[in-house]
Simulated scan of single mutants.
Amino acid sequence: MWGVSDVITSSQGALVRIGAFVVAAAAVGVVGRYLAVPAVAHAVRVRNTDNPALVRAVRSYARVVVVAVAFLAGLVAAGFGAVLTKSAVVAAAASVVIGVAGRETLGNVVAGAFLVADPDFGVGDHIAWNNREGSVEAVDFRVTRVRTTADEVVTVPNSTLATAEIRNPYSRGRYRLTEEVEVRPRDVERASEILRETAAADDRVLDDPAPSVSASGFGESRVALSVLLWVGDPDHGAVWEVKDSFHRRVAERFAESDITLNPPKGRTVTLRTGDAHPIVDALTRERAP
């Protein structure tokens, strides 16, 4: 049976183990957080000056690694290192947790690492995926936060973006707008001139390549004109402002030049000789002497 001295000895041993765990874990944690993490983040920043998302992600991942290493160091200092390396039960439990509970989470973590390492994907970019679009606000361990055009913040699992087709329409320094209008055949030349002048008058539209207008098709009593113009230094707001301004000024110029925008379709009515029609009968009676 245990006596008082045995209880005291056991308590002292437990306190020593706890103290060793706290000291070791704190020491490793402090060194890692204030020395290792900043050093790693600085190294990544020097090599990726134009990708702040990657720097933030690496800093976050490094902090998680430091916490894990500090915890393991504390266990080793407390005398549980042998148990961790030799216990089949611990290994089996860890395998089950990682394989079942953490499978999806780990998949998102890995996908997030690939996303932040992609030079064409970063915080502030306007992206489109799976019939949705918005601006990337943050890339976290599990999800990416995107602010949509409706000013809603959507959290998208990293694995979804990693496996989807992502478009980054404004990443190349210019964006092509394609607009189409329809006019009467007699107004084609004048309308084409107005469209080119209106597009070129906007300072946000590039001179090289210059705006162009081409006849893209025929309709019933009208001709379709396709306008191509390139917006420089584009973002989602700027592109829509250029588009809105172009529409307003074209409508105004067309009205001044008496050009009908998107004229109604023509209709031809053919009557067979001898057929009775109320409208034809009425006109005949009006013209009769």
Rank of each mutant, 00 (worst) to 15 (best):
Ala255Ile: 04
Arg145Ala: 14
Val154Glu: 12
Gly219Arg: 05
Ala57Lys: 14
Phe121Ser: 01
Leu195Val: 08
Arg45Ser: 13
Arg267Phe: 11
Arg45Pro: 02
Gly112Val: 02
Gly102His: 03
Val67Lys: 00
Val123Gly: 04
Ala25Leu: 13
Ala27Cys: 09
Thr284Tyr: 09
Ser135Leu: 13
Val58Cys: 06
Asp235Asn: 11
Ile98Tyr: 01
Ala88Cys: 03
Gly74Tyr: 11
Lys265Ser: 15
Arg63Gly: 10
Pro211Met: 09
Ser60Cys: 03
Asp202Met: 08
Phe114Cys: 00
Ala111Asn: 00
Val110Thr: 07
Asp125Gly: 07
Val55Phe: 12
Asp233Ala: 11
Glu189Ile: 12
Gly102Lys: 02
Ile8Gly: 03
Val89Gln: 03
Asp207Met: 01
Asp118Met: 02
Ala20Ser: 13
Ala255Trp: 04
Leu177Tyr: 10
Asn130Met: 08
Asn51Lys: 14
Lys265Gln: 10
Val109Arg: 03
Leu35Trp: 15
Thr105Ser: 01
Val40Gln: 07
Asp207Asn: 07
Val67Glu: 03
Ser135Lys: 15
Arg172Phe: 11
Asp244Ala: 10
Gly274Arg: 10
Arg249Met: 07
Thr144Trp: 15
Glu193Ala: 11
Ala62Val: 09
Leu225Glu: 01
Gly134Lys: 07
Asn108Gln: 09
His247Pro: 01
Gly122Phe: 05
Ala113His: 10
Lys265Pro: 01
Leu84Val: 09
Val154Asn: 05
Leu115Asn: 02
Ser214Met: 11
Ala82Glu: 08
Val83Ala: 04
Ile127His: 09
